[in-house]
């Protein structure tokens, strides 16, 4: 499967309330060593969901960009409103375009 198939999909709670869309995906390098390589595999850990502008990957929160003040106040706020939802808390199948939160999941605030 392609990672882009996760991106831009709507995420809804167990009772159907929309949380937003998948804007980015968090990976953690704690998998087994890759075959033919020396580094650990990248595990898909969580999806970053927000209601805001899709292009929010400028680096104001998750990256290190600090200024200018004008842009940080606009985009920092957008990025701050995003939440990380661990993959294990989601269910999806290929027929349903939306990703659904498990009823026992707690939303993790970034």
């Amino acid at each position: 499967m392609r990672l882009s198939e996760l991106l831009d999909r709507a995420v809804v709670t167990a009772d159907g309330r929309t949380l937003g869309k998948v804007r980015d995906v968090r990976l953690v390098q704690d998998g087994p060593i890759l075959a033919g390589g020396t580094q650990a595999a990248l595990r898909v850990d969580a999806v970053i969901v927000s209601r805001g502008w899709r292009g929010v990957r400028l680096g104001y929160l998750r990256g290190e960009v600090r200024g200018p003040w004008l842009l940080r106040s606009i985009f920092g706020r957008l990025e701050r409103a995003a939440q990380a939802i661990p993959l294990r808390d989601l269910v999806w199948d290929d027929d349903e375009p939306r990703l659904r939160l498990r009823s026992d999941a707690r939303a993790e605030k970034r």
């Binding site: 400028l58 680096g59 990256g63 290190e64 960009v65 600090r66 200024g67 200018p68 842009l71």
Partner: peptide, 18 residues
């Protein structure tokens, strides 16, 4: 460009001054 000029991971310590 304005964003990148403020990104220390690309510019090191030579990001834009205030």
């Amino acid at each position: 460009i304005l964003v990148i000029a403020n990104d220390p991971s690309y510019m090191g310590d030579k990001t834009n001054g205030r």
